[in-house]
Design a protein around this nucleic acid. Structure first.
Lengths: 114, 114
DNA sequence: TGACGACCAGTAGCATTGCTACGCATGACG
DNA sequence: CGTCATGCGTAGCAATGCTACTGGTCGTCA
């Protein structure tokens, strides 16, 4: 379980969680942990930079939500983010299908999506 | 389509193909392409270094097979490789299950393997 | 009052990994 | 002879997530 397994998939995961509604970084970490059954327990140093990447890429937008003293930056999906997510989902299905095919046997049951 | 999606999963794929029997690098590339339905079309610069990594890690062993003039290095799984593969398979199932759970909905159906 | 932990955000530096772009060799085919 | 498929390999690069750290508010408990 090299931690590198996550590489390239984190963005999609974050976008998927944000699809349920706006959230701030800390909440995203917990959401990922719970909805992955404990598999994803990401450190802040992984998530925060990722969110900034996503924002730079225009896939999410952030706003400073100040409760009273505790400030939190709330992220939400943009239109581009939504589109990107759909595409990521498709990529994921293709990718995971291919890996499973190779891993679980030589035979492949490939469902052409188009 | 980020190529980074493969990161951390290549080893398992190579080991899985080698489980079917010994093969040399070039053949592995084609095997991966076909059994993944064309999804994995890896350049030699990806596969050869990976094989050397695996060999250094003791997961595969190589021998120079000289047909006549064309020399090819044939790889085969070691015991450790076989063990590692089993473990990789399990990791993959856990990982892919978790990603799919997050991607395709909030609910998770987690099957504890033990 | 003080200490500690949960909550919340962020950065610097690192290690790993796969990719691009090469070089080099043999054999077959025109 | 030129070119392509086969076959192995390396150098350098870019991307990404992780570790370890800083800094702050709030609540609780001794």
């Amino acid at each position: 379980m090299t931690a590198e397994a996550l590489k390239g998939h984190l963005d999609g995961l974050l976008l998927a969680v944000l699809e349920r509604g706006p959230a701030h970084g800390y909440a995203l970490i917990e959401a990922l942990r719970t909805s992955s059954g404990g598999t994803f327990d990401l450190p802040t140093g992984t998530v925060y930079p990722a969110l900034r990447r996503l924002e730079t890429a225009g896939l999410v937008a952030s706003t400073w939500e100040k409760g009273d003293g505790r400030q939190r930056r709330t992220y939400e999906l943009t239109g581009a983010g939504r589109r990107h997510l759909a595409q990521q989902r498709e990529s994921w299905h293709q990718f995971s299908g291919a890996v499973t095919a190779v891993m679980d046997g030589g035979d492949i049951t490939w469902r052409p999506s188009t």
